[in-house]
Design a protein around this nucleic acid. Sequence first.
DNA 1: CAGGTTCTTGACCGGGCGGTCAAGAAATCC
DNA 2: GGATTTCTTGACCGCCCGGTCAAGAACCTG
Lengths: 220, 220
Amino acid sequence: MASGKDTQSSTGSADSSKGGGDKRQLTARGRDRRDALLEFATKSFAERGFHPTSVSDIVDGIGVGKGVFYWYFPSKDELLLEILREALTDLRRFQRSQMNEANDPLGELEAGIRASLAWSADNADVLRLVMFGWTEEPFAKALRRGRRIVIDDTTKLVAQAIEQGAIADGDPAMLATAIIGVTDELGRHSALGGLTAKAQASVDDFMDTAVRFCLRGITG
Amino acid sequence: MASGKDTQSSTGSADSSKGGGDKRQLTARGRDRRDALLEFATKSFAERGFHPTSVSDIVDGIGVGKGVFYWYFPSKDELLLEILREALTDLRRFQRSQMNEANDPLGELEAGIRASLAWSADNADVLRLVMFGWTEEPFAKALRRGRRIVIDDTTKLVAQAIEQGAIADGDPAMLATAIIGVTDELGRHSALGGLTAKAQASVDDFMDTAVRFCLRGITG
DNA sequence: CAGGTTCTTGACCGGGCGGTCAAGAAATCC
DNA sequence: GGATTTCTTGACCGCCCGGTCAAGAACCTG
């Protein structure tokens, strides 16, 4: 912190206030460090678990002093929350980028599902952290919010598809929940290494099967 | 559960050796204490998380000294492992009890699915612990073994059903994995409170839907 | 170069954790 | 009733964890 010993001296306004506060002004170097911490922590948490991985493990792992951690993040919990938040943002951004090539709701739905599966395959680490997150309150709360968002996204799409008669009538919210459920489960498989060599021989085939499974269950 | 296979009689010399060793000779009182610890720990771990719940929390919660814990269990980790093991035993026992009323493989499959869903609804706590377990190695290892067992059980059934022509041809192992995946996911919903009031209005309806979903996906 | 801000260091701290153990209390056995 | 075994107590221990902070280094900006 450095901002003068105790208390905020006259040093300018807003930021600086607390340790690894919210919206710090980072230089390029700073952003790199932060990213490195985020990345290494994600990997470590996924491999050995959140609690068994200490802050010291993380800073040692990237070869910096402990203070660095608390310069960029206010606490260990907040770091995990940040990982979770960024993951959701990243997933949704990726989904949107894949979806805007389709132009009817059903096509968007399919693109969204494919995007989720592809993202899951690329982010097994994060999926493990998500599993952990559901088991402790502050994290579960954030995950519930995230889940709501994703389900609402999907529900809108399903409702549109129903309106257009592209899929059979039904409660859009329930259908959306089912879709998310299936994609979650499939994602978890890759995160947990549950897939047999044969089963994941072709990721594309796998995704085709999954998509068909979802759509058949829904359009049927 | 509880019951347990009453030990081998004849106070062999073996036991007694260490703290909360493996196969201690327990009196009725002892079994009660052990069960109380198991039950309270399960609830606490599910509510607040494994690591945030200390051994002191547990013993304080049932009003005994700390030594009691280590009389019945060799370590906190071993306690969780034990909870997980007993849960699997209990689930499988329940499944078998429900399945032997059916007599063709397809009927057994359906009964097994229903049994899993009913059990999940009654054991939301344990399901949370399972989620946690997947995130740390010693527990994940045990869970992988358990999952193998359940999938193998199911695979046999599916293979029989295919032989009889009751369901369409396909890789039994993959179909079994899909069935377990769906039931897991549905179980998680109740554990996580993901169900809306409306959706869980009737557990039976819900189960019917789920069963139909699985069987349609498979027989289709 | 001075002056400010961003970043880094690492010794340090209080506390809570998992786990131990010597000393008994309760049952149970003979 | 003595001896044996099962169970219980709770003070205690060492460790290591998350988090702090005074002291700089590095890097801007002018």
